[in-house]
């Protein structure tokens, strides 16, 4: 499973009360279980099942993904900047693998 490379973009600084956008993308085939390989064999389902974001340990976003989500899932959502801290993203693969990415945000 090579699906561990991810990108995360958030502003590194924000004013207290600002609503900031979190954008992220991760390399993953999101095999739906409905497509076939070149030899006509069904490619088994292999997807990321959940994606969540926690700020200073508190969940701020959660998404349950189904096979209808495209390969290399991109997600954007918003969060309110209240205090400086760490944003941690977690993707959980159906095979149990956990992929993470994080960023620091300084709130002034």
């Amino acid at each position: 499973m090579q699906g561990v490379a991810s990108r995360l973009l958030v502003p590194s600084t924000a004013k207290k009360g600002d609503v900031i956008e979190v954008k992220t993308i991760i390399m993953h085939p999101m095999d739906s279980g409905y497509s076939k390989d070149q030899n006509g064999k069904t490619i088994p389902r292999e997807i990321i099942e959940t994606f969540s974001a926690a700020y200073n340990g508190k969940q701020v976003f959660k998404m349950q993904l189904q096979p209808s989500i495209s390969s290399n899932p991109f997600v954007s959502f918003f969060m309110k900047a209240e205090q400086s801290g760490t944003l941690e993203l977690t993707w959980v693969d159906q095979d149990g693998s956990v992929y993470k990415n994080q960023a620091q945000i300084t709130v002034t």
Binding site: A5, R7, L8, K23, I25, I26, M27, F74
Partner: peptide, 14 residues
Amino acid sequence: DDDISNPGFLWVDK
């Protein structure tokens, strides 16, 4: 246009 939304950048990083 956006280097986060462009999935090609996952390969660039690699």
